[in-house]
Amino acid sequence: MIWQQFANGLAIGSVYALIALGLTMVYGVLRILHIAHAGVYALGAYVGLLVFRFIPNFWLALAITMVASSFAGIILQRYLYAPLLALPRIVPLIASIGLFIAMEEIFRLIAGPYILAFPADPGLGGIEWGIVRITNNQFLVFLVTVSLLATLWFVMSKTKLGLAMKATSQDLEIASVMGINTERIIATNFLIGSALAGAAGVLVGVYFNSVYPTMGSIPAYKALAIIVLGGLGSIPGTVLGGLLIGLGETLLLGLINIPFPRDALAFIIMIIILMFRPYGLLGKE
């Protein structure tokens, strides 16, 4: 029982981590709270479903979604955020909230307010391991998340691009003086982050077999709790935070059965941890 809940928690937590990663990458370079990131996530789910309806192949849908959502991310960066960067931080925040509201409404107007099914079968099969049963969909979530995280880790720590991205997030001006094309690095951050969000949208759509216009609203703020928990801008911290919240929610609600809403729990965990570490788990002052 406890191990089964553990597997469920890990699956949810790794999706949280995937969504929050893009947010933390954007925060790392631009220091803005990109609420509309959750809109990109929902967009990903819809694009994935649309592709899947034409060509019922999960992997193709995933790949096209990641390309499409990274385009969406770059457009947002160039036409919405770029002109607002010099302004007080509340301005891009409100613009981002406005965009998120508008995106949800556009999904509703185009696709209707209903929950659409996403019956994709990637053909992986489940695993039965002692008393723990990892379902088909859970296995899919683990597989995709782990391979995306591994790719991200490789890019960030083994390539020149990753080095440039780290330098840019540490100090944008000095990085640009050192000859790094920071404009391109910022765009790359949006590209990678939005691709991850799109992938997370497809994964969640398949995992719960549902895609609906407001599917982004809970991740929109929960991802904020996660990146704060991890220490705003820290990539390993975000992965840790995502897993912690996913596991914490599932275990606390599944085992102790406290009468408390799942979505407030993430914030209670966050507030408690912030009291002891005001810059998050792996954050720096």
């Binding site: 904020l224 979505d263 407030a264 998050g280």
Partner: peptide
């Protein structure tokens, strides 16, 4: 401070 504060207040709202 700042962004940490903004998100903490979201948390307070939900709680």
């Amino acid at each position: 401070r700042e962004d940490f504060l903004a998100i903490t207040t979201i948390g307070i709202n939900f709680v």
